[in-house]
Design a protein around this nucleic acid. Structure first.
Length: 108
DNA sequence: CAAGTGACTAGTG
DNA sequence: CCACTAGCCACTT
């Protein structure tokens, strides 16, 4: 079992992730920046990782992807689930399982 | 307490 | 576009 050490830092990240609108995605770096931790993309990944298995979707973790427009989870840890959730929101994937950030990035 | 790890990224070539 | 790298940092061993 993972100890749920929810620091204020994590809460700040979760709060930011909750702001991502339905049908849009954001990158780890983007969330980090908006949460007030520029250049700490990795921290966001770590925070979301600590969320796996938790009360699903109180935080829309599936809307967070990497800067290349890909899902960072590997096929063994739920990438298909994330794809399914995103598709259900109308987000399209290309042949290589990538998302067109020009179209779906939670922008501006 | 040092070293390893990871849902990252921007820069180079 | 791909491969490799240095920089970042909380958490685990």
């Amino acid at each position: 079992m993972r100890a749920k050490t929810v620091s204020t830092t994590y809460r700040r990240i979760y709060r930011t992730v909750r702001r991502i609108p339905h049908g849009r995605v954001a990158t780890y770096g983007q969330i980090a920046r908006l949460a007030g931790f520029p250049n700490h993309a990795r921290l966001v990944g770590y925070a979301l990782h600590a969320l796996r298995g938790a009360d699903d979707l109180t935080v829309p973790w599936h809307r967070v992807i990497n800067a290349r427009g890909e899902i960072s989870l590997n096929e063994f840890s739920g990438a298909d689930l994330q794809r399914k959730l995103l598709r259900a929101e109308g987000i399209a994937f290309d042949r290589r399982h990538r998302i067109n950030l020009n179209r779906f990035l939670w922008d501006k």
